[in-house]
Design a protein around this nucleic acid. Sequence first.
RNA 1: GUGACCGUAGCUCAGGCGGUUAGAGCGCCAGGUUGUGGCCCUGGAGGUCGGGGGUUCAAGUCCCCUCGGUCACCCCA
Length: 428
Amino acid sequence: MKHTIRSIEGTYDILPQSPSAMHRAAAWRHAEETIRAVLERFAFEEIRTPVVEPLALIARGMGGSTDIVTKEMFSFERGKTHYVLRPELTAPVMRAYLQHHMGQRPGEQRFFYFGPCFRAERPQKGRYRQFHQYGAEIIGTNDARADAEIIACTVEIYRALGLKNTKLRINTLGDAASRARYSAVLREYFAPMKDKLSAASQKRLQSNPLRILDTKLDYERDLVRNAPQLMTHVDEESLNHYEAVKAYLKRVGIDFAEDPFLVRGLDYYSRTAFEVESFDIGAQSALAGGGRYDRLAEAIGSKQAVPAVGFAAGMERLLLAMEAQDVSWPAAAPLDAFLIGLGEAAKAEVFALAFQLRRDGLHVVHGLHNRSMKAQMRTAHRLRARYCIIIGDNELASRQAQVKDMDQGTQESVPFDALPRILFSHRS
RNA sequence: GUGACCGUAGCUCAGGCGGUUAGAGCGCCAGGUUGUGGCCCUGGAGGUCGGGGGUUCAAGUCCCCUCGGUCACCCCA
């Protein structure tokens, strides 16, 4: 409680033991392994990109009017280079795709990622300054099946984890042109009632009127309710695309709700937009979100348009939801044996024996403190060791260890070289 | 960035209107067996009461500042 150095605000440690799933390594591993298994069944390939990226990638990729870019970036400069700790992974993945000319590989490209992201927001439940996202992208096709497959994969992961009490909402934003037309219509609609809008929404009127639609302020919702519908301004091709996506989802039995006011916050989205919400994790309820982003590649410098669709999901929120629903994870591998050496010569023997048993594939530990036998037995018990192996002068002389079964309380004499066989035989 | 609540041992928490050596339970360590765990008993270590300043004869307790935590707004995964 003195001036020990602490972790930075909004960051946290994941520990071997913790009552909360989010702070417990075993829960993370279980979630990660399940996620990877599903993603790999969907034929996504893992991609890993740097934690730092050029500022311009994020600023141009996500859009200059987004909150993330204008006030939530951890950025710094050295020399002439402006760096940013990545706030998300879609733009970096697209960057890698373009940089390595991955469009030259056969067919559309399917990637998944997992890693830390950074946003300088005020921490609260489900929101941290360093947080973790996993997600997947299908790059190189505008086929509606790609959209449907991304959405299906997003929810399939929750099914695989046994997560319930979630809701999938979908919408279409139309193409770039229809989105621009609709923005103009909205500006006209809201202009007369400008002074009734919140300060934030008044700014959005200029920068991105669509964002006013998903306001959470009650008095704004009333105004929004009567606003012109996005759907009536969406281009026909996008509407057809949307209908196709919905049909594919129905075909595989994915439940969804259409939400005409669902507008994703990032500028690069067009056409399909979707979000998965949990009702168990507080105000930051979005477990995952995504959509089509056919304009991102050009925004970050590609000469050609590259159609793409993807999702991103939050690990912390997933773990909070798992915890709320008592989703369990496999217990850690049990300890096969705890070795106790009494006397210097025996301790040396135990050290070597432990090494050999580990090489044989057994999970063993021996105490490194010079403590009493009683204390070591107690430790063995607390570590839930299946066996205790005791070696003193007598055992050293006869090359026979005392092997105590910690469940039965029985004890027998076992030759050193028979130890692996005995320990393995009692595994189950 | 804004707001509310909170900050006493490793953990969970007690500490009426300020009063002298700051407590409990659990955990940890040791002893009760010259080489044996769980239960029980005994003892011990561990706190500059988040930090700084102020009021007062006296501050864990009151005031101010500050740093953290939690939750919400906002925004998003």
